[in-house]
Simulated scan of single mutants.
Amino acid sequence: MIIAVTGTPGVGKTTVSRLLSEKLGYEYVGVKEFAREKGIGEMVGDELEIDVDELAEAMLREFHGRDVVIDGHLSHFVPADVVIVLRADPRLVAERLMERGYSREKLAENVEAELVDVILVEALEENENVLEIDTTGKTPGEVVEEISELLERGIKRRFGIVDWSGVYDEVLPYLRLGSGRM
């Protein structure tokens, strides 16, 4: 089974993906590392721009018929049996990205993406089986248990459980259009 774990930067993808792969006994694969290894994409400034079609083809060839957890904010473009979309309160995403030293522009772009469900919408457009998981206030272990329980119960489609519209005013300072400071 191929499980793709995706979401906005800062929602906990890597930690959850590694723990999930350990719990299930699946191989762990990071999208960025795989793309670098296979020569997919090109460096633009200090970021690797990945061609998602080339990535999807290469990962399908490499992992078809194997048990693998694919980690990365582009993993929902890879053919998978189930896509897990991790979500987190945009204020938490902002805090984590500030700690990582993201530029104001990249921070605003990612907070806005989380606020308006960009990754979830893309995942639903690309995949039949999508599970949305709110990681806010949960430990990585709790998130893995929630995912495991849903998979064990055979649930393959669950979304619409997150609505960040109630925190919009509090997130405005992080957005490019907002007023105020970070």
Rank of each mutant, 00 (worst) to 15 (best):
Met182Glu: 15
Val5Glu: 02
Ala80Asp: 09
Gly160Glu: 08
Tyr174Cys: 00
Ile161Thr: 12
Ser165Glu: 14
Gly7Tyr: 02
Ile40Phe: 09
Lys156His: 08
Lys106Met: 08
Ala108His: 04
Pro9Lys: 03
Gly65Phe: 10
Glu142Val: 09
Glu112Gln: 06
Gly25Gln: 10
Ser75Tyr: 07
Leu124Trp: 03
Asp117Val: 04
Ile84Glu: 04
Asp134Val: 04
Ile2His: 10
Gly178Trp: 07
Leu172Asn: 08
Lys23Leu: 09
Val118Ile: 12
Leu97Glu: 00
Glu109Ile: 05
Thr14Phe: 03
Ile84Ala: 04
Glu27Asn: 14
Gly10Lys: 04
Glu126His: 13
Ile155Val: 15
Ser179Thr: 13
Glu105Lys: 14
Asp51Ser: 10
Asn127Gln: 01
Val144Gln: 01
Leu92Asp: 13
Met59Arg: 02
Pro90Ala: 12
Val116Ala: 02
Lys156Met: 14
Ser21Glu: 01
Gly180Ile: 10
Val69Gln: 00
Val167Leu: 09
Ser179Cys: 12
Ser75Lys: 07
Ile133Ser: 03
Asp117Cys: 04
Asp163Arg: 00
Ser75Asp: 03
Leu97Gly: 02
Glu57Tyr: 07
Glu170Gly: 00
Ala80Thr: 08
Glu27Leu: 15
Glu37Tyr: 12
Leu92Cys: 09
Glu114Pro: 03
Glu146Met: 11
Glu109Lys: 07
Pro173Leu: 09
Phe63Lys: 15
Gly101Lys: 13
Glu37Val: 06
Arg153Asn: 14
Asn129Arg: 10
Val162Gly: 01
Ser17His: 07
Met182Cys: 14
Gly137Glu: 08
Pro79Leu: 01
Leu92Lys: 13
Ala80Arg: 07
Gly160Cys: 07
Leu172Ala: 11
Lys13Ser: 00
Val116Tyr: 10
Gly41Val: 01
Met1Cys: 09
Gly12Tyr: 02
Arg96His: 09
Glu22Thr: 13
Val44His: 12
Arg18Trp: 00
Lys106Tyr: 03
Leu19Ile: 12
Leu74Phe: 02
